[in-house]
Amino acid sequence: MALNTPQITPTKKITVRAIGEELPRGDYQRCPQCDMLFSLPEINSHQSAYCPRCQAKIRDGRDWSLTRLAAMAFTMLLLMPFAWGEPLLHIWLLGIRIDANVMQGIWQMTKQGDAITGSMVFFCVIGAPLILVTSIAYLWFGNRLGMNLRPVLLMLERLKEWVMLDIYLVGIGVASIKVQDYAHIQAGVGLFSFVALVILTTVTLSHLNVEELWERFYPQRPATRRDEKLRVCLGCHFTGYPDQRGRCPRCHIPLRLRRRHSLQKCWAALLASIVLLLPANLLPISIIYLNGGRQEDTILSGIMSLASSNIAVAGIVFIASILVPFTKVIVMFTLLLSIHFKCQQGLRTRILLLRMVTWIGRWSMLDLFVISLTMSLINRDQILAFTMGPAAFYFGAAVILTILAVEWLDSRLLWDAHESGNARFDD
């Protein structure tokens, strides 16, 4: 018995066209964080690309023209004298008006014999932002004059995390709450300039795509075929072959399989920071003279006294001054041990922890910024005066060393310790 099946006739004509040209192939790229070699397709503007294995951002879609970056830099340069030299806060102490600005706080630190601690604050609040705007201006002028731009481009990517104007702005709020127990506070004209400078700096850093600047100024022929001998440069993120001198053909720094002496430098910085954190938390970090009496505060006791007036601000200072430094030390110690013992479990967790400490590390400088600003506000000789204690130097040095330890660690070593050939990683 035959089955009668109805015929289905399409209502619209289906047209099949042959592909007349070869589909576009992607360029081969190595991930600078996990060293995976993959094919990167062509990316349009405002599109980002991520590593298929570790999800690290390979290409950032946010990109401004150099002219727009230069305009932002010149605007920031105009704001800087007002943000640093004009009063941020006014207080009335014992019937006398006192003005506080950024430069005055750094000068008070240096004047009291601790120039190293003052230079830490100076670099993060004044030096690094000033280098940022002058570097962008150098790129703008240098591109037109045919100057060598490689050193500036190499420095810009590392400079971003040292620009800490946003953290200093939080420190202004913390210092205001600490001082309000002794005097009446009012915002100064410099505060508005400083807030504007923070906003412009944040926007500029978020749109400063150094890798795209490398592509514009020093374009290189990408690798179009897969080759395990391809290496990625950690300076400019170019994937290719080393030249005859073993250097990256684009930025001219040595092109090595792994960062040289990464573990040794990381261990040295980490152990030194552990040693410095002990006096930083045991010795007094601030000293207040009130009517001839002397009151010393460690980091913890200062947080407890701050909690009596504002528990939320005390929580912020606790996280930045105690929780973050010790968390960074514990995480980095764990990561280094996992590399030495070739741990194969929990790779995803370790990668996330490394990215976390990379982002939060700079916030530990908050305590030094609060001390710097408070020193310029309260300084009335023996009637009422505020000065920093010996722990300030140890704390600042420990924070900087932990930042350097994270920067010096080559994250690809975590993958080397893991089993080879993993296309995915999980716990």
Rank of each mutant, 00 (worst) to 15 (best):
N4Q: 10
Q7F: 07
T9V: 13
T9F: 09
T11Y: 14
I14R: 11
R17L: 12
I19N: 11
G20R: 13
D27P: 15
C31G: 00
P32Q: 10
F38A: 05
S39W: 14
L40N: 10
I43S: 08
S45P: 13
Q47H: 12
S48E: 15
C54Q: 00
A56E: 12
A56R: 14
I58K: 09
I58T: 06
D60E: 10
G61I: 12
D63A: 15
D63E: 13
W64L: 15
S65E: 04
A73E: 12
M76E: 04
M76R: 06
G85E: 11
H90W: 03
I96E: 01
I98R: 05
A100L: 02
M103N: 08
M103Y: 09
M103Q: 10
I116T: 06
G118P: 04
F122D: 04
G127R: 00
A128W: 01
A128S: 13
V133Y: 03
S135Q: 02
L139P: 01
L139S: 02
W140I: 15
W140D: 04
W140F: 14
F141Q: 01
R144Y: 13
L145V: 14
E157W: 14
E157N: 11
R158N: 13
L159I: 03
E161F: 03
W162C: 02
V163D: 05
L165C: 15
D166M: 14
A175N: 11
A175Y: 01
S176P: 03
S176Y: 04
S176I: 11
K178C: 00
K178N: 15
K178R: 03
H184K: 03
V189C: 09
L191G: 07
V198S: 14
T201Y: 05
V203S: 12
T204V: 09
L205N: 13
S206K: 15
W214V: 13
E215K: 14
Q220K: 12
R221A: 07
P222V: 09
R225Y: 09
R226N: 09
E228N: 12
V232W: 08
C233S: 02
C233H: 00
L234G: 06
G246N: 05
R247A: 07
P249I: 07
R250D: 00
P254K: 02
R256G: 05
R256Q: 03
R260H: 04
K265W: 02
K265Q: 07
K265M: 05
L270Q: 07
L270K: 13
A272Y: 02
S273M: 03
L282R: 04
P284E: 04
N291A: 14
N291Y: 13
R294H: 05
L300C: 08
S305V: 07
S305G: 09
S309H: 04
I311Y: 09
V313P: 11
V313M: 06
V317Y: 02
F318Q: 07
A320Q: 00
V324Q: 07
F326H: 06
F326M: 05
K328C: 00
V329M: 06
V331S: 15
M332S: 06
F333N: 08
L335R: 01
L336K: 05
L337M: 11
S338A: 14
F341D: 05
Q345W: 15
Q345C: 12
L347A: 14
L347K: 10
T349C: 13
R355K: 15
R355L: 12
M356Q: 12
I360S: 03
R362G: 02
W363S: 01
W363Q: 06
M365P: 00
T374R: 00
I378Q: 00
Q382A: 12
A385V: 07
A391K: 00
F393H: 10
Y394K: 01
A397C: 05
V399I: 04
L404E: 11
A405D: 04
E407L: 09
W408H: 04
L409V: 06
L413R: 06
S420C: 11
A423G: 15
R424K: 15
R424G: 10
F425R: 13
D426R: 13
